[in-house]
């Protein structure tokens, strides 16, 4: 079986509610395990939050999230028309070892995305940032 769906949100954190409805629908359609859904929520929230907060410094913009699901894989495509930004190379490196007093928290979002997804790729295409994230489910 296969399943496709796409959502479009504006660059406001309150719009993330649509992400959680989206993953809930995925869970129901594909009978995903609770830990898979938890980790999808986390990695997709981190990816979308970065775009919401930083892609459109001059005003309103839109963000599209699509999924192409097969029996083995979920391919997520996150697309925006904001300033060019490759999170895989330009985000600060996450600090996961320093003691609390010295710890910088930047870069944690992209770190989590890399940890929780099986493959993450970035492409700048025309005016768009495209982040493709693949999760194996079998």
């Amino acid at each position: 079986m296969s399943f496709e769906k796409k959502i479009k949100i504006s660059n406001q954190l309150s719009e993330l509610e649509k992400l959680f409805l989206f993953t809930q629908e995925l869970q129901e359609k594909l009978e995903l395990a609770p830990d898979v859904v938890f980790n999808l929520n986390l990695s997709l929230e981190e990816a979308m939050t970065n775009v919401i907060l930083y892609a459109y410094p001059n005003g309103t913009g839109y963000i599209e999230l699509g999924v192409n699901a097969t029996e083995d894989n979920l391919l997520f495509t996150l697309q925006d028309q904001g300033i060019p930004f490759n999170p895989l190379t330009e985000a600060p490196e996450a600090d996961i070892t320093s003691p609390a007093e010295e710890r910088e928290i930047g870069g944690l979002g992209i770190f989590l995305i890399r940890q929780l997804m099986d493959l993450v790729e970035y492409e700048r295409s025309g005016e768009s940032n495209i982040l493709r994230m693949t999760k194996q489910i079998k």
Binding site: L42, A100, E101, G109, L112
Partner: peptide, 19 residues
């Protein structure tokens, strides 16, 4: 039931403040 990285950031700030 869930925490995102911004949630961790609040926990860390509390930890620093309290300690």
């Amino acid at each position: 039931t869930y925490i995102c990285s911004s949630g961790l950031r609040i926990f860390l700030a509390m930890h620093k403040d309290i300690t």
